[in-house]
């Protein structure tokens, strides 16, 4: 598939009036319409499953640009894909820190397990595998991303389990995010159309809270301010699990397999 000439048209674009109206809506959010081009390209991917020639033309039409101008932008950014992406985009960070912590071995294992190379999709169309650059989660290395949701402290075993679950349609939750949706649904959120799932998942994982927990334990605080503006001292609303230190599922390698419910953190 990697020798397919791109971009190519299949003549079956799904872009219709609804999407064009949404593109105009995006353009209207900005002081200058062209600023909406990146969101519009995310929207094209959410509808088409990739950047199609029709998608490029639609953006160009709405913004009064040429197709070449839009193409020049679409080819610059790595998140825009010219070949169809599977239901689940699975990324493995292989930048230095994750690589040495195990990312290289995880990526090798997944290539074998899925029988695909970098930036290729499994035959059932479910999974596209790609190695990633640093995704700003180094304190959870080795890190993987599924449809741009975090999977922390991975091992080759938890990684193969994760892709198996995705292929079998088992519900999968990110340890620091929501239940995994499809890649197209994720692209729609990135385009600027919220899916109402911001409240899923925790405030952060164990590493996020490492310093704060230590400070609480030892009663370390920043100095008192002059309180010219701040409201009364925060009430003690610390969730029980935060107060009691690391939870068992916070241990390295466990997060990824654990289905996180946010029960413990729910407001009364």
């Amino acid at each position: 598939m990697s020798d397919t000439t791109v971009p190519y048209s299949t003549g079956e674009t799904k872009l219709g009036d609804t999407t064009l109206a949404e593109m105009r809506e995006l353009a209207a959010r900005y002081p200058v319409g062209r600023s909406a081009l990146l969101p519009m390209l995310h929207l094209v991917q959410s509808v088409e499953g990739r950047i199609t020639p029709e998608g490029i033309e639609a953006c160009a039409d709405v913004l009064g640009l040429t197709g070449a101008e839009v193409s020049a932008v679409a080819t610059f950014y790595t998140m825009y894909k010219r070949r169809p992406v599977g239901d689940y985009h699975v990324g493995v960070c292989t930048n230095t820190l994750c690589a040495v912590m195990g990312g290289d071995l995880i990526f090798e294992r997944l290539k074998q397990h899925l029988d695909v190379g970098n930036d290729e999709t499994t035959e059932d169309g479910k999974i596209t595998l790609e190695h990633l650059e640093c995704n700003a989660a180094c304190d959870y290395a080795p890190v993987m991303m599924v449809n741009w949701e975090f999977f922390d402290d991975m091992t080759p075993e938890s990684a193969t389990q994760l892709v198996d679950d995705l292929r079998e349609g088992t519900e999968v939750k990110s340890p620091r995010g929501a239940t995994i949706c499809t890649w197209r649904e994720a692209e729609r959120v990135l385009a600027g159309f919220p899916d109402g799932r911001a409240d899923e998942g925790p405030t952060g994982g164990k590493a996020t809270l490492a310093g704060l927990r230590l400070a609480r334990e030892r009663n370390w605080k920043a100095p008192q301010g002059n309180h010219s503006g701040r409201a009364p001292e925060p009430e003690q609303t610390v969730s029980p699990d935060a107060a009691s230190g690391p939870r068992p599922e916070d241990q390295p390698g466990k997060e990824s397999q654990t289905v996180h419910t946010d029960d413990a953190r729910k407001e009364d």
Partner: peptide
């Protein structure tokens, strides 16, 4: 440690 930015990170939601 001086949690200021991170001070509310363990609050519920």
């Amino acid at each position: 440690l001086t949690p200021v930015l991170s001070d509310n990170w363990d609050q519920i939601r």
